[in-house]
Amino acid sequence: MRGLAVTIELTLLSMLCASTLAIMMAFGRSYGKQPLPFIALIYEKIFRGIPLIVIFILVYFGLAQIGILIDAFSAAIIGLALHSTAYQIQIYRSAINSIPEGQVIAAQSLGMSKLQAIRYILLPQMLRLSIPGWSNEFTIILKDTSIAIAIGVVELMRQGRYVIVREPSVALYILLVVALIYFIFVFTINRGLSYLEKRYHISGLEITKAR
């Protein structure tokens, strides 16, 4: 079950990096001065346009080529984070944009600085509003960790392959077990986070729900 642990570590670490990066970029895009919004925009376009597997390979071999040798595990985290950030920016941005600008003005008229207004007024609302999109992204990252097999990370999927290679006749069963594990995780994350969503729900504070 080493593979499972690696999968979970990959998911959590890259989620952490991606969320942090994306929240900063989202504020940069909505409230920053040029060229911040432009940089964030270009970033988004590029990393949404390239398959994750290509990003993995570029990070893994690219960093090596410029002399930075990292293991496949770290490369996978960087790749997943870079990729997910591009998608998460939108989650946070639409959350930020659904908070009326008047609230920032009201905060400033109380004497708060722009940073204080972001910290005490925008950020808490944004985080709550982002929970559905965030949980969605969480499950996607979890599933995407399987692609790290391409650069040789021994996660759940590769572990499964090892067993298959040794014992080809049980391939189907092994893979079904692997699938089941993913399914249980995705299911749990969705349930857990929709609980979180209810828990921290504030009446009147919601993005016009998509579904």
């Binding site: 009326p100 008047g102 609230q103 003005i105 009201a106 400033q108 008229s109 004497g111 708060m112 600085s113």
Partner: peptide, 20 residues
């Protein structure tokens, strides 16, 4: 200006309360 704004209250047409 943030020090000064404390001395000038502002009440808005559309309230602008902090929803959270």
């Amino acid at each position: 200006i943030n020090r000064i704004r404390q001395k000038i209250g502002f009440v808005f047409q559309d309230f602008n309360l902090f929803n959270h």
